[in-house]
């Protein structure tokens, strides 16, 4: 007999994970806008609201564990639940990177404008596009799109390299901007890590759909 209540629970959990992803996405987007606008109040709100994302992640985890215990899922349901446990953690950490950027804005608050941000906005656009694709792949069980997400992380890495080169050049030219530019490196690092986490989400989508557990981008170091 089809397990309709169980499958409704799985669908509800999936929708909840998508909602968590939307909140994390908004946090990342707003953190970069606040950085550009030098809006410290906005950054404080992002920092403050992160606790809700953390709590929702824990609630989703609890629900996953309860479903595993009660329903003993197998096959694609088991792979999806195992992946959801991992993916919600990655989404929550992406929101933490938004908080990281928000706190950089707070630390840079004493710096007078103008505030040149190098390729930080471009990195943000790229990271958010990856996040959108990763979550779309998760939502639609699209392993082709998920693999594309994993491959596109290189673009973000290249932009980070350009930020790094810009910052080093600016530091060499003017010793007074060393502190500000060090903050920019941190912001770039947060955005680059979002790309890594989107890659991880993509890998788990591939696992959910195909059962294939792979590291699509092993370390080259």
């Amino acid at each position: 007999m089809p397990r309709e209540a169980y499958h409704r629970d799985l669908t509800a959990l999936h929708d909840r994970t998508l909602a968590l992803a939307r909140r994390a996405r908004r946090a990342v987007d707003e953190s970069v806008h606040a950085l550009r606008a030098v809006d410290v109040d906005w950054s404080r709100r992002i920092d403050h609201d992160d606790i809700e994302i953390n709590n929702e992640r824990l609630a989703i985890e609890e629900r996953c564990i309860a479903l595993i215990a009660a329903q003993q899922p197998v096959a694609v349901d088991l792979r999806r639940l195992a992946s959801t446990l991992f993916i919600t953690g990655e989404i929550e950490r992406i929101a933490d990177h938004a908080v990281g950027i928000a706190r950089i804005n707070l630390m840079m608050a004493t710096e007078p404008p103008p505030r040149p941000l190098s390729y930080i906005p471009s990195m943000a656009d790229r990271a958010l596009a990856m996040f959108d694709d990763a979550i779309k792949a998760f939502d639609e069980d699209d392993d082709t799109l998920a693999r594309h997400v994993c491959q596109s992380d290189d673009d973000l890495d290249r932009l980070q390299d350009r930020v790094y080169a810009d910052v080093i050049e600016a530091m060499r030219a003017d010793a007074n901007v060393v502190e500000r530019n060090t903050y920019l490196l941190w912001a770039a690092h947060n955005l680059e890590r979002i790309g890594d986490r989107c890659t991880n989400i993509g890998e788990r989508v591939v696992y959910t759909v195909t059962g294939e557990m792979t590291d699509t981008k092993p370390s080259t170091f």
């Binding site: 007999m1 089809p2 397990r3 499958h7 197998v74 096959a75 694609v76 088991l78």
Partner: peptide, 19 residues
Amino acid sequence: IFTNPSDKRTEDYITGRFG
């Protein structure tokens, strides 16, 4: 079989989508 069955009929049965 229980993590990654190769036949959709197996998958549908063990996940309770029919039977």
